[in-house]
Write a protein that binds this DNA or RNA. Structure first.
Length: 204
DNA sequence: TGCCAGGCCCTCTTTAGGGCCTT
Protein backbone atom coordinates (compact mmCIF):
# COMPACT_ATOMS: atom_id res chain seq x y z
CA UNK A 1 0.00 0.00 0.00
CA UNK A 2 1.40 3.34 -1.07
CA UNK A 3 0.37 6.45 0.83
CA UNK A 4 1.24 9.38 -1.40
CA UNK A 5 1.88 12.52 0.66
CA UNK A 6 1.13 14.73 -2.35
CA UNK A 7 -2.23 13.21 -3.27
CA UNK A 8 -5.46 13.64 -1.44
CA UNK A 9 -9.12 12.64 -1.61
CA UNK A 10 -11.49 15.50 -0.84
CA UNK A 11 -14.90 14.17 0.11
CA UNK A 12 -18.34 15.36 1.11
CA UNK A 13 -21.40 13.43 2.27
CA UNK A 14 -25.02 14.43 2.08
CA UNK A 15 -26.85 12.55 4.81
CA UNK A 16 -30.30 11.98 6.26
CA UNK A 17 -29.34 13.90 9.40
CA UNK A 18 -26.52 14.87 11.71
CA UNK A 19 -25.67 11.68 13.53
CA UNK A 20 -25.15 8.07 12.48
CA UNK A 21 -25.60 7.23 16.16
CA UNK A 22 -29.24 8.25 15.72
CA UNK A 23 -29.65 6.01 12.69
CA UNK A 24 -28.81 8.59 10.05
CA UNK A 25 -27.25 7.33 6.84
CA UNK A 26 -25.39 8.78 3.89
CA UNK A 27 -27.59 9.59 0.87
CA UNK A 28 -24.89 10.97 -1.46
CA UNK A 29 -21.12 10.89 -1.69
CA UNK A 30 -19.03 13.27 -3.77
CA UNK A 31 -15.26 13.31 -3.92
CA UNK A 32 -12.37 14.55 -5.99
CA UNK A 33 -8.76 13.43 -6.10
CA UNK A 34 -6.01 16.03 -5.92
CA UNK A 35 -2.60 15.07 -7.24
CA UNK A 36 0.28 17.56 -7.14
CA UNK A 37 -2.16 20.44 -6.71
CA UNK A 38 -4.50 19.47 -9.56
CA UNK A 39 -7.93 17.79 -9.49
CA UNK A 40 -7.40 14.60 -11.49
CA UNK A 41 -10.40 12.41 -10.73
CA UNK A 42 -13.91 12.52 -9.32
CA UNK A 43 -16.50 10.24 -7.74
CA UNK A 44 -20.21 10.90 -7.25
CA UNK A 45 -23.23 8.79 -6.43
CA UNK A 46 -26.58 9.02 -4.73
CA UNK A 47 -27.29 6.07 -2.45
CA UNK A 48 -30.53 4.63 -1.15
CA UNK A 49 -30.45 4.54 2.67
CA UNK A 50 -33.39 2.11 2.85
CA UNK A 51 -35.83 4.59 4.38
CA UNK A 52 -37.52 7.88 3.49
CA UNK A 53 -35.65 11.09 4.23
CA UNK A 54 -37.52 13.98 5.83
CA UNK A 55 -38.61 17.16 4.08
CA UNK A 56 -35.92 19.27 5.73
CA UNK A 57 -33.22 17.17 4.09
CA UNK A 58 -35.07 17.16 0.76
CA UNK A 59 -35.20 20.96 0.82
CA UNK A 60 -31.69 21.41 2.19
CA UNK A 61 -30.00 19.19 -0.38
CA UNK A 62 -32.43 19.13 -3.28
CA UNK A 63 -32.18 15.33 -3.10
CA UNK A 64 -35.69 13.84 -3.09
CA UNK A 65 -37.05 10.50 -2.01
CA UNK A 66 -37.94 9.93 -5.64
CA UNK A 67 -34.31 10.40 -6.63
CA UNK A 68 -33.17 7.96 -3.95
CA UNK A 69 -35.76 5.33 -4.85
CA UNK A 70 -33.79 4.08 -7.83
CA UNK A 71 -30.32 4.83 -6.45
CA UNK A 72 -27.94 1.99 -5.65
CA UNK A 73 -27.69 0.94 -2.00
CA UNK A 74 -25.23 2.47 0.46
CA UNK A 75 -23.53 -0.93 0.54
CA UNK A 76 -22.92 -0.98 -3.20
CA UNK A 77 -21.77 2.65 -3.44
CA UNK A 78 -19.46 2.53 -0.45
CA UNK A 79 -17.71 -0.56 -1.77
CA UNK A 80 -16.91 1.38 -4.94
CA UNK A 81 -15.89 4.39 -2.88
CA UNK A 82 -13.49 2.29 -0.81
CA UNK A 83 -11.72 1.41 -4.05
CA UNK A 84 -11.70 5.07 -5.09
CA UNK A 85 -10.03 6.37 -1.93
CA UNK A 86 -7.53 3.50 -1.69
CA UNK A 87 -4.82 4.43 0.80
CA UNK A 88 -4.91 8.16 0.09
CA UNK A 89 -5.17 10.78 2.78
CA UNK A 90 -8.53 12.45 3.18
CA UNK A 91 -9.84 15.97 3.54
CA UNK A 92 -13.27 17.43 4.28
CA UNK A 93 -14.78 20.71 5.44
CA UNK A 94 -15.57 20.07 9.09
CA UNK A 95 -13.92 16.68 8.76
CA UNK A 96 -15.24 15.37 12.06
CA UNK A 97 -18.70 15.19 10.46
CA UNK A 98 -17.69 13.37 7.28
CA UNK A 99 -15.28 11.13 9.15
CA UNK A 100 -18.10 10.08 11.47
CA UNK A 101 -20.25 9.04 8.50
CA UNK A 102 -17.39 7.42 6.58
CA UNK A 103 -16.55 5.36 9.65
CA UNK A 104 -20.20 4.36 10.12
CA UNK A 105 -20.78 3.46 6.46
CA UNK A 106 -17.53 1.51 6.27
CA UNK A 107 -18.47 -0.33 9.43
CA UNK A 108 -21.68 -1.46 7.71
CA UNK A 109 -19.67 -3.06 4.90
CA UNK A 110 -16.72 -4.17 7.01
CA UNK A 111 -14.24 -1.93 5.19
CA UNK A 112 -11.26 0.02 6.53
CA UNK A 113 -9.32 2.98 5.23
CA UNK A 114 -5.73 3.79 6.06
CA UNK A 115 -5.49 7.48 5.14
CA UNK A 116 -5.59 10.28 7.68
CA UNK A 117 -8.13 13.11 7.77
CA UNK A 118 -7.33 16.80 7.52
CA UNK A 119 -9.94 19.52 8.04
CA UNK A 120 -10.26 22.62 5.85
CA UNK A 121 -12.53 24.29 8.41
CA UNK A 122 -9.96 24.14 11.19
CA UNK A 123 -7.19 25.43 8.94
CA UNK A 124 -9.45 28.21 7.66
CA UNK A 125 -10.05 29.43 11.19
CA UNK A 126 -6.28 29.91 11.47
CA UNK A 127 -5.65 31.34 8.02
CA UNK A 128 -8.75 33.37 7.12
CA UNK A 129 -9.01 35.21 10.38
CA UNK A 130 -10.94 38.08 8.78
CA UNK A 131 -13.58 35.92 7.07
CA UNK A 132 -17.15 36.70 8.19
CA UNK A 133 -17.51 33.03 9.15
CA UNK A 134 -16.08 29.70 8.06
CA UNK A 135 -19.01 28.07 6.32
CA UNK A 136 -17.94 26.55 3.00
CA UNK A 137 -20.11 28.89 0.90
CA UNK A 138 -18.88 31.97 2.71
CA UNK A 139 -15.24 30.98 2.28
CA UNK A 140 -15.69 30.27 -1.44
CA UNK A 141 -17.00 33.83 -1.87
CA UNK A 142 -14.36 35.26 0.46
CA UNK A 143 -11.57 33.64 -1.58
CA UNK A 144 -13.17 34.62 -4.91
CA UNK A 145 -13.38 31.01 -6.03
CA UNK A 146 -15.53 30.56 -9.15
CA UNK A 147 -18.81 28.87 -8.26
CA UNK A 148 -22.23 28.38 -9.81
CA UNK A 149 -23.77 28.30 -6.36
CA UNK A 150 -24.97 24.67 -6.29
CA UNK A 151 -24.02 24.13 -2.67
CA UNK A 152 -25.28 21.22 -0.59
CA UNK A 153 -24.71 18.64 -3.29
CA UNK A 154 -21.87 16.30 -2.53
CA UNK A 155 -19.66 16.57 -5.63
CA UNK A 156 -20.02 20.34 -5.84
CA UNK A 157 -19.15 20.82 -2.19
CA UNK A 158 -16.19 18.44 -2.54
CA UNK A 159 -14.91 20.41 -5.55
CA UNK A 160 -15.31 23.70 -3.70
CA UNK A 161 -13.54 22.30 -0.65
CA UNK A 162 -10.69 21.14 -2.87
CA UNK A 163 -10.33 24.58 -4.46
CA UNK A 164 -10.52 26.27 -1.08
CA UNK A 165 -7.81 23.96 0.21
CA UNK A 166 -5.48 24.64 -2.72
CA UNK A 167 -6.10 28.35 -2.29
CA UNK A 168 -5.22 28.19 1.39
CA UNK A 169 -2.06 26.21 0.62
CA UNK A 170 -1.01 28.97 -1.78
CA UNK A 171 -1.70 31.61 0.85
CA UNK A 172 0.33 29.78 3.45
CA UNK A 173 3.20 29.17 1.01
CA UNK A 174 3.20 32.85 0.02
CA UNK A 175 3.27 33.94 3.63
CA UNK A 176 6.10 31.52 4.36
CA UNK A 177 8.07 32.88 1.40
CA UNK A 178 7.55 36.40 2.70
CA UNK A 179 8.47 35.38 6.23
CA UNK A 180 5.03 36.47 7.40
CA UNK A 181 4.19 33.24 9.15
CA UNK A 182 5.09 33.03 12.78
CA UNK A 183 6.30 29.79 14.27
CA UNK A 184 3.36 30.07 16.62
CA UNK A 185 0.90 30.08 13.69
CA UNK A 186 2.59 27.14 12.04
CA UNK A 187 2.35 25.22 15.27
CA UNK A 188 -1.32 26.13 15.62
CA UNK A 189 -2.11 25.08 12.05
CA UNK A 190 -0.29 21.80 12.49
CA UNK A 191 -2.12 21.20 15.73
CA UNK A 192 -5.60 22.14 14.52
CA UNK A 193 -5.21 20.19 11.31
CA UNK A 194 -4.44 17.24 13.54
CA UNK A 195 -1.80 14.71 12.70
CA UNK A 196 -1.76 15.26 9.02
CA UNK A 197 -1.88 18.12 6.59
CA UNK A 198 -0.74 16.38 3.41
CA UNK A 199 1.31 18.44 0.98
CA UNK A 200 1.27 21.28 3.49
CA UNK A 201 3.52 19.91 6.18
CA UNK A 202 5.71 18.58 3.39
CA UNK A 203 6.67 22.16 2.64
CA UNK A 204 7.79 22.95 6.16
C1' DT B 1 -44.03 11.76 25.94
C1' DG B 2 -39.84 13.45 25.22
C1' DC B 3 -35.71 12.78 23.78
C1' DC B 4 -32.88 14.48 19.32
C1' DA B 5 -24.55 15.10 17.74
C1' DG B 6 -20.12 15.90 18.67
C1' DG B 7 -15.40 17.70 17.95
C1' DC B 8 -12.90 21.83 18.26
C1' DC B 9 -11.81 26.32 19.90
C1' DC B 10 -12.08 30.45 22.83
C1' DT B 11 -12.29 32.25 27.26
C1' DC B 12 -14.70 35.58 32.12
C1' DT B 13 -10.49 28.06 31.45
C1' DT B 14 -8.45 23.43 33.26
C1' DT B 15 -13.41 21.49 39.40
C1' DA B 16 -16.65 24.70 32.41
C1' DG B 17 -19.67 26.78 29.31
C1' DG B 18 -20.96 28.18 24.93
C1' DG B 19 -20.57 29.07 19.86
C1' DC B 20 -19.40 27.25 15.41
C1' DC B 21 -19.78 23.88 11.58
C1' DT B 22 -21.42 19.76 9.21
C1' DT B 23 -26.87 17.30 7.35
Amino acid sequence: MHNNADSLIVLDFETSGLSPDNGDRAIEIGAVKIEHGIITDKFQSLMNPGFRINSFIENYTGITNQMLQNAPSCHEVMLDFATFIGSNNLLAHNASFDQKFLDAEFEHINQRYSGEFACSLLVSRRININAPNHQLGTLVNYKNIASDGSFHRALFDAEMTAKLWLSMLEDIQRQINQNQVSFDLIQKIAKTAKKNVPALLANW
